[in-house]
Nucleic acid binder design. Structure first.
Lengths: 229, 229
DNA sequence: TCAAAAGTGTTAGTAATACACCCATGC
DNA sequence: GCATGGGTGTATTACTAACACTTTTGA
């Protein structure tokens, strides 16, 4: 006979999604114009409320899908934000999630339809509630993860140049890296396939394209390999 | 005019506290016999429900105080656990917090009164709900933090021997460390004060006692120092 | 006198950093 | 022919890891 917790306070539990993308220049974050009160019309992370039948991961994916049409991506829980007055309308606790996606792979039309927009992390607009704080924390976590595992390949097209990869790392870490050291380290990891093909857009000489070797990477992870950039 | 989110589901939000302690031998976790249904009488983390007027940090401290008499310690948020059926009585999301405390500094009588008990992390009893999973995650986080910052001093008495400190690190990391390398590294950090005094309990020869130099440490942190064991 | 834990340095290997010039091409 | 970005290797330094014997003293 299971007894219930009848005297306890219940609260609204929100989920906010921090979606990172990369456009071969800058690290970007996807924001949306909020279409309900309070703060209607202001920029915001993709957010919504947890429903009774969902866990938080599922809610995060549903909310992202409803607001942007983006489906089935891996999101990771960041932190629960719980200041009593963080939402002026009503007491709400928000669990922030973040994810990395490839901007080009996700249908621009769909995102436009939903009035979502990419902003460079260095030029974010004013955001509602504590969403800036969430983003600050997400960037910190992203930097940490980047220094442990070679993530970031999600953010690039299937074929990419060393220079694009380097720029991606630079924009995540917020600092310039040495070209030769970077290439040496990435090559030492031995998880890229160098293609015959060259990308001729970026320079007259052209630069070789690479692919991420997911199989080799998986194998190395199983052998317990760890990464340090 | 602030509008409310009237159609959204509300849920119970619980907080569970993972309290780490060290008794100069083993890394331990504080557990309590649950005195209400469901699962009454089984071992559990210290848990309770968030109240309307509290944020999660404050709730975590209140719950810990009510169940163990331990006050005013620094707790860090770990993760929100949200499986739909994690609590059979009613839909409950739980945010886990963890902390490090010095077992001896916290009044044993008080803890006994509340029927809390310390268990070695290597010999945990069966726990309710998803509490084992919470502990696994907390240990992982603790190991990570230990490898970045010289934490763990919270777990030792004010004066301690190098060997005690080494045992603490070994029990957090779950592996043996080399005595000389350990001492060399700790000394290189230059955040301990070597005392004249010796501890005569552990051996015939006696071993020198050390103190953590909080001031020096603070200064180094400000200079941007980072730690790698 | 011996058992039990404390204390003490060096070396070899590995990883991280700093650094500068030539190449290929389109204009 | 020159401007642009691409590509390449080495030397130095700092860190990490492995390793064994002597000291002290209470029983």
């Amino acid at each position: 006979m299971v007894q219930k917790y009848q005297l306890e306070d219940k609260v609204l539990l929100a989920v906010d999604c921090i979606i990172f993308g990369f456009d071969e220049e800058d690290l970007k974050i996807l924001l949306i114009k909020r279409n309900f009160e309070p703060e209607k019309g202001k920029w915001s992370l993709m957010g919504g409320f947890l429903k009774r039948h969902e866990n938080l991961n599922i809610a995060a994916n549903r909310i992202l899908y409803q607001l942007t049409g983006i489906e089935q991506i891996y999101m990771e829980q960041l932190y629960a934000f719980s200041e009593v007055d963080r939402d002026p309308a009503e007491r709400t606790i928000s669990v922030a999630y973040f994810a990395l996606i490839n901007i080009k792979e996700h249908d621009k039309a769909l995102i436009d339809k939903y009035s979502a927009k990419w902003f460079s992390v260095t030029e974010l607009p004013e955001l509602i509630f504590d969403h800036s704080e969430m983003i600050t924390k997400a960037i910190k976590r992203l930097r940490y993860k980047t220094s442990k595992k070679p993530i970031g390949f999600e953010l690039l097209p299937e074929k990419f140049t060393m220079r694009q990869l380097q720029k991606l790392y630079e924009s995540i870490l917020g600092e310039k890296l040495d070209k030769r050291n970077f290439i040496n380290k990435i090559n030492a990891l031995d998880i890229l396939i160098k293609l015959e093909e060259k990308d001729m857009n970026s320079s007259r000489k052209g630069s070789f394209l690479y692919q991420f070797d997911a199989e080799k990477y998986q194998q190395k992870v199983e052998e317990g390999f760890s990464f340090k950039l």
